[in-house]
């Protein structure tokens, strides 16, 4: 590769250009964003399962926060109401914990959601075989492809998980107001609610990335010839 065909090429490579292909982060971000925008409906469906799972997680946790807020008042009335509402509270308990049944349902919903994401992303990769092959022919490295898919999933993850956390939190508070009255809002610690929603968002973001990892690796490792052949 030390020889050059024409003067033009000569001039270019005499500049201190590193002999390595690059894809600046800003560019990858722009490309990923475009991919989501163009396939908006598809992205929406992929994200929807995440939104549902995360809103459930957020709902459970924020409801607990509300229960804890009510318990902290020490009012036996609230305690009775909570027990009637299904919280397993012993006479000595000062904090409400998520019961095992709830925990299992949350875990199950999250598992279903991850499987859904993996499935959707595998489809997305298959759909884009040719595009991936083309990019590789243009000189893209494996990690460009990996990064594009991860960024895309990351963006979907943040938006979906945030939406889920907000929806779950909102409905949980609404539910509390209907059941226990306005007192539930005045006694709940806002910081707890924030923490619960942030936790749910974080979990959602992580799940979205975890779900795309395997499909993205398949996409990135693909040889350009195979990717092209897949079409015919």
């Amino acid at each position: 590769m030390s020889k050059h065909t024409s003067n033009k090429v000569d001039k270019q490579s005499s500049e201190p250009v590193e002999r390595q292909v690059v894809l600046p982060f800003k560019q990858s971000l722009a490309i990923s964003f475009k991919q989501i925008r163009v396939r908006f409906f598809r992205s929406l469906i992929t994200t929807l399962s995440l939104v549902l799972a995360i809103s459930f997680l957020s709902f459970v946790r924020v409801s607990n926060d509300v229960a804890n807020g009510l318990l902290s008042t020490g009012d036996p009335d609230f305690r009775r109401q909570l027990i009637r509402a299904g919280y397993d509270l012993g006479p000595e308990d000062v904090r409400a914990e998520t019961n095992p049944k709830q925990r299992w349902i949350v875990i199950l919903s999250i598992l279903v959601c991850v499987v859904g994401i993996v499935n959707a992303q595998l489809m997305a990769v298959t759909e884009r075989f040719r595009e991936i092959g083309t990019m590789k022919c243009l000189g893209a490295l494996d990690r460009f492809i990996l990064r594009l898919f991860l960024l895309e999933a990351g963006m979907q993850g943040v938006v979906g998980a945030m939406a889920g956390a907000l929806i779950g939190g909102f409905f949980s508070l609404l539910n509390s107001v209907i059941r226990f009255g306005n007192a539930s809002l005045t006694h709940v610690l806002l910081s707890d609610v924030f923490f619960s929603m942030a936790f749910a968002t974080g979990v959602g973001f992580f799940l979205s990335l975890a779900g795309v990892f395997y499909p993205a690796i398949i996409a990135a490792r693909m040889q350009p010839v195979e990717a092209m052949r897949a079409e015919h």
Partner: peptide
């Protein structure tokens, strides 16, 4: 190696395909 091959594809060779293979979203 993979890096040099990518560099070769990027700088030394231009590909034209039967099915055009433009990237649809761009």
């Amino acid at each position: 190696d993979a890096y040099e091959l990518a560099w070769l594809r990027c700088r030394k060779i231009g590909y034209i395909f039967q099915t055009f293979n433009l990237i649809q979203v761009m």
